[in-house]
Design a protein around this nucleic acid. Structure first.
Lengths: 168, 168
DNA sequence: CCGCCCTGGATGACATGTCAACCATCAGAG
DNA sequence: CTCTGATGGTTGACATGTCATCCAGGGCGG
């Protein structure tokens, strides 16, 4: 971001002003810290990663605690290969199980196990508390509304972009 | 986040309202997408990861393009082991080099190479453009100011937290 | 000079994510 | 029925992160 403005680039790039740089770095730092705190807490207090948690949430959101793999992938907006790898690890740890799909020989279902339910039921309250403490509580309702607008705005800006909005 | 509110937890957790859930998920999605787009662009157009880029930026920010490892770690707010691993990979790719530290036999310097300089000088303009396009351009100056306040607010909320703000 | 603890940094084992290739099944054209 | 291409999903190789551990050199009391 601070590469000296002397290089002869076609149409001199619009470098960030010092103030813009500060804002951008603050924003990045906030994101990183937030993520780090939430991950750390989830890991140390509940022995789950945020990724594990997301999968379990998606599964409990759905009737029977059971879903097709690609359906999950769409829900989570994960690549299918990432999901597949992650599911394998979760199976190994007993949080979920795979089940055959009768109607389609290719597909398979993912089912949440009792251990999985227990894990998420233990983790969720703490997680929500922390999300409140770090995100909702510090912001006024007005700020929250404006942040939401901003997030939506940025999402819109990304929608028309070269790379598809990450899915499989 | 949607674990049914029937479990008998001590002091029923303050679950998120549907609207709060929507806001939180939107926020997470925005973060993820932003990061994904920036990473993808950096990778495909400049063959660098955001991490590589950050290291190179930190090195060009500093006189002589040279710094001590832990100094870099502090700058980037990375764990020292992460940095060490990453530096090894970057050395292997010729972007940086290690140099002995005369004054302290333990330490070593990291120096940016010519290849490293070329890489960052090629990558920076495109990166800045994308940051503008996805972050600064879509927001009004007023929104930007409010977002900054919000980010600072959240960072403050995290400062007093159990886990130290991630450093080594 | 010696013993001891601190510090800077590297390493190995392991969790996670990405990309590309693979494979079986399905679905439709002939 | 068979060939062909799309679909659902897994796999392997490899990049990246985390944690715990190790190790060499430094600084200091004695």
């Amino acid at each position: 971001m601070t590469t000296s403005p002397e290089a002869s680039t076609p149409t001199e790039p619009r470098w960030l002003s010092p103030e813009e740089q500060r804002i951008w770095r603050t924003f990045l730092r906030m994101q990183k810290e937030l993520d780090a705190q939430l991950s750390r807490q989830m890991q140390t207090e509940s022995d789950l990663s945020i990724a594990d948690f997301s999968v379990l949430v998606a599964l409990t959101d759905v009737p029977e605690g059971q879903a097709r793999v690609l359906e999950l992938a769409r829900e989570l907006q994960w690549e299918k290969s990432r999901l597949s790898h992650h599911l394998s690890r979760m199976v190994k740890r007993g949080l979920i199980a795979r089940a055959e799909c009768e109607s389609d020989g290719r597909g398979s279902f993912v089912v949440i196990t009792d251990a999985g339910r227990q894990a998420i039921q233990a983790a969720a309250p703490r997680h929500v508390e922390l999300v409140r403490k770090l995100f909702f509580d510090p912001l006024s309702p007005a700020q929250l509304g404006r942040l939401d607008e901003i997030a939506v705005r940025i999402l819109e800006a990304m929608e028309g972009c070269p790379d598809a909005l990450s899915d499989s």
